[in-house]
Design a binder for these strands. Sequence first.
DNA 1: TCCGGTAAGCCTACGGTGTAGGATTTTGTT
DNA 2: AACAAAATCCTACACCGTAGGCTTACCGGA
Lengths: 224, 224
Amino acid sequence: MADSKPRRGRPAGGRAVLTRERIVTAAVAMVEELGLDAVTMRGLARRLNVDTMSLYHHVDNRETLLNQVTEVVLANIELPPATGVFRDDVHAMAIAFRRVVLRYPHCAPLVLTRQLGSFTALAPVEAVLSIIRAAGFPPDRAVHVMRSVLAYLIGTLLREVSASPTFSGQNLGGVERRRTELTDSTLPHVAESAPYLAVCDHEEEFEFGLDLLITAVELQRQRQ
Amino acid sequence: MADSKPRRGRPAGGRAVLTRERIVTAAVAMVEELGLDAVTMRGLARRLNVDTMSLYHHVDNRETLLNQVTEVVLANIELPPATGVFRDDVHAMAIAFRRVVLRYPHCAPLVLTRQLGSFTALAPVEAVLSIIRAAGFPPDRAVHVMRSVLAYLIGTLLREVSASPTFSGQNLGGVERRRTELTDSTLPHVAESAPYLAVCDHEEEFEFGLDLLITAVELQRQRQ
DNA sequence: TCCGGTAAGCCTACGGTGTAGGATTTTGTT
DNA sequence: AACAAAATCCTACACCGTAGGCTTACCGGA
């Protein structure tokens, strides 16, 4: 009996069973391979050798599926052990966050944009709070500090992941072109800083601003 | 002669002429009224009493149209005059940026996310650089400082515009529910700070982090 | 005055999207 | 053996962005 046509109904014994987890995992991989917009329910189903509508038995809809993708990425943060030195701990935490975002660059807009209240999303918050509280800030201040640092991280990382390769330093011809564009912009300070505006060493930039923030926080702690 | 059917060809004398500017203006208004996703080429054309495809005589495609929307918002920043006091000028600049973003909250994701190299987009950059240069930073440092401040602004504002009304303080029942959720999260520091995590006074938050950054920058200038 | 080019508007059509509703089959339980 | 639940698949709908071609009004030159 040849069953050339795909079967209907529940999958026969041998076949892999569709799972929420299998779907989300495939979605993460697909986002990284093809970009966010290219991930469609149809395409995802095709990749899983499954009918489109089968996905909806495990996932509410595309939007919440993307939330779950976000959570998977978030769950991959490798929280470093705390040393007790405020500066080092904040720095390590920030680096850990940056690392996971850069490991999933195409998922990054999700991670940096969506505010989720789930447990997975709260774990990093807990870690940051614990560092700041250990430095002696009262709970209300700790929240303020955390939000400031988080805002900075989100801002820089958003720039980093959505920057054109030109801006990031590859493709030196593009850099040159961009530099002369800036020089000819009739804006004096832009022209003056053109060589520095035309490119961006993201890691250096990341460290610079982070250092500024940590320094300011340390200073505020002393005053208090 | 009744012309009940819509005419074809160029509009007769009296009718308003479609313009790139008219389209972009309508798009901005539509984004604010209905949200970003709800702005479709078809819907936009309907709103302008025009066939969908007519838009494409003035606009390349949806993506670049949204870039132009972004530019309109950016062009609405009211750059305050510089006073020469570093802290005040940076602060005023940040406030001006925040004001325009909050005036177009639904356009904000565009403004905060897209990196445009146009003249309109460079004008704020020029203003910020001028302030930092006036404080005595060399051009390369000025760029670093600017990027740090910008990253922070983007991060906070992104949170502010995409925050649920609950989080922003309205709807006190929701706040209460959220607070108990956090308290019951089994994460000790999250639970401890729950009352402060459950709500967010965006303006206060904005000022707090901005003050941190400015202080750190001032401190670095002195050292140098 | 006519006349032709051009730009603006309109229409049709294509390939894609998310997802509601229902038909079908397998599995596990009784 | 009978049956309920769950998983799969199919069909269909209302949208979307936009390519290509047709029609019309305007304008500059002859």
